[in-house]
Design a protein around this nucleic acid. Structure first.
Lengths: 203, 203
DNA sequence: TAATCAATATGACAATTGTCATATTATTCG
DNA sequence: CGAATAATATGACAATTGTCATATTGATTA
């Protein structure tokens, strides 16, 4: 009997999956949570063989939990179950030593199969991620440029930004100009869009 | 036996739910799809009693399908199953005469219950939606202003927008000025932010 | 019917934004 | 070490953006 823990903040998916996993042969769901904090507490006390973790959850993300599991040397294996094939997430997950990375774009049977393979010691990455790895657009902006762009994305005009960051207005405009040329655009709004689409801005 | 059709583009949820519904007493899943076009074709030929539709799907949205079901006078009842409590979606759904509107933030049992109630003739709206209705800040922008703001939010400069919408550049700037004063801001980026925060821009 | 509002337009002016050339100082990397 | 890069600054100019006043036309509405 493989023991499982499921952390997924979308209730519909959480309940549907946990019922399905509970019905599957050889699997036992020790518990589920819809937020990261609860999940981490229960994983520590239940010590499941496998934890299936969503990334974006309230309180703590699945990646945070994966980090903690690693640093606390728990034997629980982690399968990340998430919506998007974002390189940054994937990288962090690999560094956290996760055993599986699956997209919600896969059928639920794939999850069950992944659970079994992971328990047998395999590491299972969704193929889409690996393809992405080679085409990943890495962020060409410097730290400072990013800082400026973050302010811009809040709608602040040059003057306010220069005050907030203790820069001259000219410098702010220079940074923007440099950002634009790196991103191949000509306006603030476009730059924000590109950066957002590439998830370089977080918030 | 209640016959069902399920359209949901996230495979994990689609397969999990369809298996679960198939196992439930008194329910029979005639088919499922991960895109709107396929769903609409199959709904027309299978004529299920209830169609469970996600909103955001490739090809056609669940709301499109709800509209078509209404205009073709199919007897299929529609339950919309979606992630966010967006007023605009909800309004359109109500106008399309849907029988149920459920958030993915509910457990899967709620879906099964909703199916039964809808078949008995009830109309079931997630309570959160109704609460939202009263606190919804209504959009002060005119149709045309919204159109302009949508272009702006894509990063297009005045000239392009005027071409795209067959307006003079001056008119575009006037609309923007009027938008700014209605929203109490002074730049395009801020206007976009306000509109996005209030979900007036969809996309 | 008169008033209001939406859609559209012009023109003019001020303010902001975007581009470029150029410069200094640290830091990093081969 | 020397070259490249990041962070910062100025100044100048062109382009775009934002504001205002004013006007016409057609709907809607009190």
């Amino acid at each position: 009997m493989i023991t499982l823990y499921l952390a997924e903040d979308q209730s519909m998916l959480n309940t549907a999956l946990s019922q399905l996993l509970a019905l599957a042969d050889g699997l036992k769901v020790l518990g589920t949570a819809v937020d990261g904090a609860t999940a981490w507490k229960q994983i520590q006390s239940f010590k499941p063989e496998v934890a299936i973790l969503d990334i974006e959850m309230p309180k703590a993300s699945g990646l945070d939990i994966a980090d903690w599991i690693q640093s606390e040397h728990l034997t629980t294996k982690v399968i990340i179950l998430t919506t998007f094939a974002q390189q940054a997430y994937f990288e962090r997950a690999v560094k956290a030593g996760i055993s599986g990375y699956l997209l919600k774009d896969s059928p639920s049977d794939a999850l069950i199969e992944t659970i079994h393979r992971v328990v047998q010691g395999a590491t299972v990455y969704d193929p889409e991620l690996v393809v992405n790895m080679f085409s990943a657009n890495s962020n060409p902006l410097t730290e400072r440029e990013l800082t400026v762009l973050r302010e811009v994305s809040q709608g602040l005009p040059t003057k306010q930004i220069s005050k907030a960051l203790f820069l001259s207005e000219g410098t702010v405009r220079n940074y923007l100009s440099s950002i634009f040329s790196k991103l191949g655009v000509h306006t603030r709004i476009e730059a924000i869009k590109v950066a957002r689409d590439n998830k370089w801005l977080s918030e």
